[in-house]
């Protein structure tokens, strides 16, 4: 298929020409997904840690639910959020539909279960090692959660990166709540969907390659950080 060769050239051409529209789209993608991952981390990391440390009635069920929610279909999340954010919905007065904020919320909803579930596993692992020592020191549950989160921070980056990967690659939810509005809510994935629908397969593929490169870059940066941490035995 000559589309692949053509896609590579289009991708390189776009990057080389430093296309302003492309830059805007890339920056919006990063802004939306990074903010979503940050927000999801603020909720997901403590939630995961608490589930790793505390046993309470229903905690087992919560873990099962959390793991299941990792597979939430983006379209469903988008649809539910649309119904809520629509002017006919309960959150309509917030005027968030078709804004980047709505896209951030959608991605945060998708990503929080992933971060929480991975954080729970990571924290549970490190807790297995620390539990007796922390018991000896008599730390409170709250301090235990904070200590485990802090000491697992480099490993938890992996959870954050997994969340970022899901967020930046997701199209189903953001195209519904964002509307793919040019210069307002158009991100990498919705642009790819649009160009595909125009039959611009090579351009769409080229954009896909740029998206992939971005993801690789973010992963490499985190991997580098973790490697440094491993050398100093903090990870």
């Amino acid at each position: 298929m000559q589309d692949f060769g053509s896609a590579v050239w289009q991708a390189l051409g776009l990057v080389a020409s430093f296309d302003r529209d492309l830059l805007e789209i890339v920056l919006l993608s990063l802004r939306v997904s990074l903010t979503a991952v940050l927000a999801a981390g603020l909720v997901g990391l403590p939630l995961g840690a608490v589930l790793a440390v505390l046993r309470f009635p229903g905690s087992g069920l919560l873990v099962v639910l959390l793991n299941a929610m990792m597979g939430l279909p983006p379209v469903v999340v988008g649809l539910v959020l649309y119904l809520l954010l629509s002017h006919a919905g309960v959150l309509g007065p917030l005027n968030l539909l078709y804004t980047p904020t709505a896209m951030i919320v959608a991605q945060a909803v998708l990503v929080t279960p992933i971060i929480a579930a991975l954080a729970r596993q990571t924290v549970a692992d490190i807790r297995g090692e620390y539990r007796e020592q922390l018991q000896v020191l008599g730390v409170s549950r709250r301090t235990e959660v904070a200590t485990l989160l802090w000491d697992a921070r480099y490993s938890l980056l992996t959870a954050m990166v997994a969340g970022f990967g899901r967020a930046i690659a997701e199209v189903g939810a953001v195209i519904i709540v964002g509307g793919n509005i040019n210069h307002v809510t158009r991100v990498m994935t919705t642009t790819i969907a649009l160009e595909t629908s125009k039959g611009n397969l090579a351009l769409a593929l080229g954009l896909g390659m740029i998206l992939l490169s971005l993801t690789i870059l973010v992963n490499a940066a985190v991997q580098g950080l973790r490697a440094t941490a491993a050398r100093t035995a903090y990870a």
Partner: peptide
């Protein structure tokens, strides 16, 4: 700002204000 969808969905969205 254009939200480009199918006519059916466009009308539904507009009906939702």
């Amino acid at each position: 700002r254009v939200v480009a969808v199918g006519t059916g969905q466009a009308i539904k969205n507009a009906a939702n204000c």
